[in-house]
Design a protein around this nucleic acid. Structure first.
Length: 722
DNA sequence: GACGCTCTCATTTTT
DNA sequence: TGAGAGCGTC
């Protein structure tokens, strides 16, 4: 490959990063500054210029998507597929290491991975077995706290046990039971993958040295999101001789709540005194006004490495701000703007609606639906998280390992086969008292005839079923199909009036498909492990929520999930104190700083046009609130803003809302009637053809003489003057 | 085992 | 307000 090709088309800073001498390098990559490009070019540089072997390179990301993208962009650039090169998420890399050294860490080779849901179920079971209720602590909270300890590298034995606080006591108790259960059954949760690997590298000098000498080059993406245990992992793998490149943006650190520590990137030189640092500040995504807004907002934060984004593109359009009357009016504003965007030839696909919390999506969904605009909400359940898929996977798990209690618990009575709580209580009782797996306990219960006849039959039937599903040496796809047919899951769905049952059946068929595809992609040496590798992948990569990029729809998502994406038109909605910044975060300086970084992330998603909106009035948890506009709007220089409605001037705000609402309100006073004629300020004359909803949710369909049929939101008309 | 009632609770989430 | 969990009833 031609070396000049590696540097052509890069700016100075990017070029410096790509061609930097081997050593410890931190690249602070602002939003839209070509971060992935630098990573990919750097790896190509290592291969072509430094003559490094792919085998000596480790690239770590946070998501499977990012890992996949890195590999495919690299291979596209090189023109061939790389083997021996490790690129993956922290979790998948640790999984790989643990599998390779499973005996050393006391795991069976095909150890199972517990996801969040499995963990909660397990904790619930432990609580039940010990007659604990959720008064002190909810199972879900307990899981969070235990995971938090693990993220800090703290085992049960490392904790302070001198506590009289009943909540803490209970957590300690649960942690111990949970840890024991996982250890005895070779179960590993997400954090455990990291923790166990870190302990392995820490305690086993031989293995540590092996990886240290193998991975001469380590690259880490999104470094600002590393938590303590991930940081420890990188620290253990990299020595003074390692060529370490970390890429990240301290201003985009938005995952503090799940253990990410921004200090890892801020204070990296404390661990690596030779550290060099390069900033990428030229932005290739957004127009000048948008960058000005982003720079101004983030400048309010202390504790930054400090950078300012700039662009060679012009100022672009002003940022449009809309102060809505209420939350329905806000959706009206957004859909109207989208409508005109599309009418002037734009795509729905250009548009993203970003909000702070998921609950906000509902109203936008309703509005888009009413307007027949195509949309897609991100962040719903992923493929492998869907209940029916997890059920099917649980069959596979239990078939592979009869002592997988989590799987057993999940499907013993799915589809229903007459194994009720009473039967299970007996089984669990035996399992607890005799220290048996649920499977063994079932066998014991059956052998000793501890159950009434009918229950015995049902339980026996289940055991026989699972035994009969065990099949060796048939292709994974077919195996999956046998499991689905044999388990009766598909028939069960077909026979019932389950909601969205067509989708569910389709998902199960897709699962067979996924299994088949997975097996086809496996290397020859991995084929014997197809089932367990498939199970691992199902746990570690929950599958895309994203549909094909060829369809055209408005995209709705939280600000968090928008990170890394870009859109020509962005709406950030609900910019109100209490919502964004969220009330839970507003009073703690650190958390407020993180909210501000989130605003920065949101603003920098926009390429051409950014819309910001907030509402004068909003119903929240069943109560009417009159929030103040978000401080983040005030932090943006007024010169880049254009108020479509409202504004910093309160008087003006009132006048506009009065003027705008009155005509419709006057016309609809005393109730709305079908057939009634009205005059709309924008659409002119029309006749009401349908009325829907009540109060502020009331909507009318009007057939306009010149513009045809439209839905209007009547809340618009009901302005209460304060 | 399905249904309906009451109660509780309310960010952000990848692996 | 409204979603989801838990509980009691048929």
């Amino acid at each position: 490959m031609d070396v000049s090709e590696l540097l052509n088309g890069l700016n100075d800073a990017q070029r410096q990063a790509v061609s930097s001498p081997l050593g410890h390098l931190r690249v602070i990559a602002g939003a839209g500054s070509g971060k992935t490009r630098v990573l990919v070019h750097r790896i190509a540089w290592l291969l072509a210029v430094e003559n490094s072997s792919p085998y000596s390179i480790l690239a770590v990301t946070f998501t499977n998507k990012a890992a996949g993208e890195m590999r495919s962009r690299l291979e596209e650039m090189l023109g061939y597929a790389l083997s021996g090169f490790w690129v993956g998420t922290f979790h998948s890399i640790c999984h790989r290491m643990l599998r390779a050294h499973h005996e050393r860490v006391n795991l069976i080779r095909d150890f199972q991975i517990l996801d969040r849901d499995d963990q909660v179920r397990l904790i619930k079971r432990i609580m039940k077995a010990h007659d604990l209720n959720e008064d002190f602590i909810k199972a879900r909270q307990a899981v969070n706290i235990i995971s938090g300890y693990k993220e800090q590298g703290k085992r049960w034995a490392d904790l302070d046990h001198q506590t009289f606080n009943p909540v803490e006591k209970q957590i300690l108790f649960l942690y111990e039971k949970y840890e024991t259960h996982c250890r005895e059954n070779s179960l590993v949760d997400f954090t455990e993958l990291l923790l166990r690997t870190v302990e392995l590298l820490r305690d086993d000098e031989l293995i540590r040295k092996h990886y240290q000498s193998r991975f001469r080059h380590i690259l880490v993406d999104e470094f600002q999101d590393t938590n303590d245990i991930q940081y420890a992992f990188i620290r253990l793998l990299s020595t003074a001789e390692t060529d370490l490149l970390v890429v990240g943006d301290d201003d985009q650190s938005i995952y503090g709540f799940r253990g990410a520590r921004i200090e890892h990137i801020l204070d990296l030189e404390k661990s690596y005194p030779q550290l060099k640092s390069i900033k990428l500040e030229q932005n290739y995504r957004s127009s000048g006004n948008i960058l000005n807004a982003a720079n101004a907002v983030i400048a309010q934060n202390q504790e930054r490495l400090g950078k300012d984004l700039w662009t060679e593109a012009g100022e672009g359009e002003l940022i449009e701000v809309y102060q809505s009357i209420n939350e329905y009016d806000e959706t009206y504003y957004v859909t109207e703007r989208i409508k005109s965007h599309v009418e002037s030839g734009g795509l729905y696909n250009d548009v993203a609606i970003l909000y702070r919390s998921n609950a906000q999506s509902r109203l936008f969904e309703e509005a888009l639906l009413a307007e027949s605009m195509p949309y897609r909400i991100y962040g719903g359940l992923r493929f492998f998280d869907r209940a029916e898929v997890k059920d099917a996977i649980a069959y596979l798990r239990l078939t592979e390992n009869h002592h997988d209690d989590v799987a057993f618990d999940r499907i013993v009575n799915v589809p229903t086969r007459g194994i009720g709580t009473r039967t299970l209580d007996v089984v669990r009782e035996v399992a607890t008292s005799q220290q048996l797996s649920l499977w063994q306990a079932s066998e014991y219960v059956l052998a000793n005839q501890l159950l009434p006849n009918r229950a015995s039959q049902a339980l026996g039937g289940f055991i026989t079923l699972i035994n009969s599903l065990f099949a060796e040496k048939i292709p994974l796809g077919e195996y999956m199909k046998i499991v689905l047919d044999g388990s009766g899951l598909i028939n069960y769905l077909k026979s019932k009036k389950v909601e969205k049952r067509e989708d569910k059946i389709e998902n199960l068929e897709e699962l067979v498909n996924a299994a088949t595809q997975f097996a086809l992609r496996l290397d020859e040496e991995d084929k014997p492990d197809a089932v367990s590798l498939f199970l691992a992948q199902a746990a570690l990569d929950a599958g895309e929520t994203q549909a094909s990029e060829f369809s055209d729809y408005v995209q709705l998502m939280t600000l968090h999930s928008a990170k890394g994406l870009e859109f020509p038109q962005v709406f950030i909605v609900g910019l109100e104190e209490g919502l964004f910044p969220h009330s839970e975060s507003a009073s703690i300086a650190e958390q407020l700083a993180e909210e501000r970084r989130l605003a920065y992330v949101g603003i920098t998603r926009a390429e051409k046009k950014l819309h910001l909106s907030y509402s004068e009035k909003r119903r929240l948890y069943g109560e009417t609130t009159y929030p103040r506009p978000s401080r983040f709007i005030e932090e943006i220089p007024h010169t880049v803003l254009h108020y479509a409605r409202g504004g910093p001037d309160h008087l003006r705000r009132q006048q506009i809302s009065k003027g705008r609402g009155q005509s419709l309100r006057e016309q609809t006073e005393g109730g709305v009637k079908l057939g009634q004629n009205i005059i709309h300020p924008k659409y002119g004359e029309g006749t009401i053809t349908a009325v829907e909803g009540e109060g502020e949710r009331q909507r009318i369909q009007v057939n306009f003489v010149e513009h045809g049929s439209k839905w209007l939101i009547l809340a618009f008309a009901k302005i209460e003057m304060k």
